[in-house]
Nucleic acid binder design. Sequence first.
DNA 1: GTTTCCCTAACGTCCGGTCGGTAGAATTTT
DNA 2: AAAATTCTACCGACCGGACGTTAGGGAAAC
Lengths: 190, 190
Amino acid sequence: MNNMKETIRSVSVELFFKKGYFATSISDIANGCGIQKASIYHHYASKEELLFSILKGTMDDLTDCLKASLANSDNVEQQMRAAVRSHVRFHLERQKETFIANSELRGLTSEHHKIIVQKRNEYERIFQNLIHEGSEKGVFSKGDVKILSYAILTLCTAGATWFKPDGRLPIEEIAAIYDGFIISGLKQNI
Amino acid sequence: MNNMKETIRSVSVELFFKKGYFATSISDIANGCGIQKASIYHHYASKEELLFSILKGTMDDLTDCLKASLANSDNVEQQMRAAVRSHVRFHLERQKETFIANSELRGLTSEHHKIIVQKRNEYERIFQNLIHEGSEKGVFSKGDVKILSYAILTLCTAGATWFKPDGRLPIEEIAAIYDGFIISGLKQNI
DNA sequence: GTTTCCCTAACGTCCGGTCGGTAGAATTTT
DNA sequence: AAAATTCTACCGACCGGACGTTAGGGAAAC
């Protein structure tokens, strides 16, 4: 790869995932890229901006993925299944980035923090709307929409914590397990 | 409180929760205790040991809680319900400590890290045994025990991420929601 | 001949941790 | 009971080092 900006990004993702944002120094990143640490600043204005650009890109892609996977159906249950699978898939396929996006928010300036949280809220709202619609139509049982949405999202998100790319189960199988688990949780007593 | 060691501990929990372990300095902690930072080292050998003692204490209490709540019954479903509620309750009542225990493992030395991970594994095994026993007896449906246990645990654990002590719902109500959600997830197709 | 991309060198700051010391309480010795 | 010693809890000053960031320059590409 001869695009240094991309290299810096991907090396950072690797290191932030492995050691954490605060424990990773600019020298570490420069080292991983084979350049001097001062050269990083030609591509990114600061360490924080580097983090922010990773988080922002990840959140945008995440939302795009979800929206694309909802477009194929207008049946609530099908949509919820598609949403869960999209969510799981994204978090396992891009495990390192999503892990960072969920654990390193504290490294952001307050303005950047606000932007990311807002993106996350929009994403959550899509799930909340599905739960609401489903329980209105009697497809899902009535329940606390917010708590249920947090449950569903964190459930899948946490996958990025323990998932091993070369583990026993392929991504699709894990997605199917979560799908079944969540739908039957939403349909309790129905 | 005139026990300075306890004060240091609780101030640290507060700060580690709010700012993170690496972003919290010994001076910050000393400041919060109203003493000089050198005095911290009279009570704890290092910053890392302070973190470790918090994590170890929390994990021990967590496991004790779980074991106590299982002793009242020998019915698998009842035990699983009790386990889930114990897990949720502990994570919400001692939100700050459990949050730290789940996010700051990287601050530990490798020996200390090993100890905590081992405690966590023992804790997880209790849940895995319950799932296994339940599916053997036909109370729960067959499924991947590990994935299901991760799902259950991270689900509740994540509560410590978003829970607000003075929010809409009391802890018991949240525990009940999770209980219902999880049991029906475990019983799908039964 | 300007822009791109990377370099060497350095800066100020802050951090975890150490050191020597002190005041006073507790304990032991006489 | 008085004197001598030890222990507890803390302080102020200080280290060495690492960190994020900046300044200025040089070579190559356009």
